[in-house]
């Protein structure tokens, strides 16, 4: 920072220069503050978008890691399970039906066996009566008839047990079949409900993914706008600084007593250009017009804002 010129009460020009220097310093201070705040605004905006992306970015992801893809995978797994469950329930229903039919057949067969058993017993009884009538000669026949009767009674007892079991089994199997039917109904209902819900969830997910992507895209767009505006503002601040620096150089030369003649072309040039507009300052054009190097009389080969790499 250049040293402040000595202010003397007898030299109004020096006093003016001193005041101008104060203004320049205040302007520099304000420019620095504006630049600092501008940088903070950009950093805050970048952090905001970055935070947004890290928090909800996964919801807007595409491809295998998207919510929709994960949900589809889950749906496929549940579909597989539901189909398997339906097949198993159907198979159990058929098995229960076959067992029920078998039980009924067994009960019918038991009734036939019971009739045969009764006939066998009657035959054994008649044989015993005939054996009794024959006396000693009928004794061997009596033994056979008694064995027959005993066998017939055993068959009858076993048959009664089979009939009882078959009779008890039928209502139990009916209940099993009823339960399987209910399970099949519930499985069907679940499948229908699941398909409806799956479609609803799928639609909601796609909508959510779209909204997230749009939000992030809008955020990126806004950030790009902020950066573009920030860059324009930086150029404006630079222009302000360049004007201050040039003005200070003129003051320095003037206080040295060397600018008396040299400053005239610059001042004439400034008067001719008139005051710069805000747009000219922002674009750097003001520095070109007002600050072109009239003092040295040299010709500029590059314009403000341009760049060349060797």
């Amino acid at each position: 920072m250049p040293s402040m010129p000595q202010v003397t009460a007898s030299d109004p020009r020096v006093e003016i220069e001193s005041e101008i220097e104060k203004v320049l310093r205040e302007t520099e201070s304000a420019t620095l503050s504006l630049g600092e705040n501008l940088g903070k605004v950009v950093r805050e905006a970048e952090e905001l978008i970055e935070g947004l992306r890290s928090r909800i970015g996964a919801l807007g992801a595409q491809g295998d890691s998207s919510v929709g893809a994960v949900l589809d995978s889950q749906v496929r797994t549940v579909n597989k399970f539901v189909t398997l469950l339906g097949d198993t329930v159907g198979a159990q229903d058929s098995a229960a039906e076959r067992v029920l039919e078998t039980s009924r057949t067994v009960a019918q067969a038991a009734q036939s066996v019971q009739a045969i058993s009764m006939q066998s017993r009657m035959l054994a009884l008649n044989t015993m009566i005939e054996a009794e009538r024959l006396g000693e000669q009928g004794r061997p026949v009596m033994v056979i008839a008694q064995e027959m009767r005993e066998l017939s009674e055993n068959i009858s007892a076993s048959n009664q047990e089979i009939t009882r079991l078959a009779t008890e089994l039928v209502p139990l199997l009916d209940q099993v079949k009823h339960n399987i039917g209910a399970l099949r109904q519930q499985t069907g209902d679940f499948t229908k409900r699941f398909e409806t819900e799956r479609d609803n969830i799928g639609a909601a997910t796609r909508s959510l993914e779209g909204t997230v992507r749009e939000t992030l895209s809008a955020g990126d767009e806004r950030l790009a706008n902020i950066l573009a505006l920030s860059n324009k503002s930086l150029v404006g601040l630079q222009s302000q600084d360049i004007i201050s620096q040039r003005l200070r150089r003129v003051l320095r030369l003037n206080s040295d007593g060397t600018v008396e003649d040299a400053s005239k072309p610059l001042l004439e040039h400034a008067r001719k250009c008139g005051p710069s507009t805000r747009e000219q300052i922002a674009s750097g054009d003001a520095t070109d017009r007002f600050l072109s190097e009239k003092l040295g009389g040299r010709t500029a080969s590059m314009d403000a804002g341009s760049m060349t790499m060797f």
């Binding site: 860059n231 750097g284 520095t287 040299r298």
Partner: peptide
């Protein structure tokens, strides 16, 4: 720099500078 004169640019180039940017600079270019 705010300077853009050919003789200064030539001098910098001769001294080994790799580029010349005239203020006010555009941030993305810099």
């Amino acid at each position: 720099t705010t300077e853009g004169h050919a003789e200064l640019i030539a001098r910098a180039k001769a001294a080994g500078a790799k580029g010349w940017i005239v203020k006010p600079f555009k941030p993305d270019l810099l």
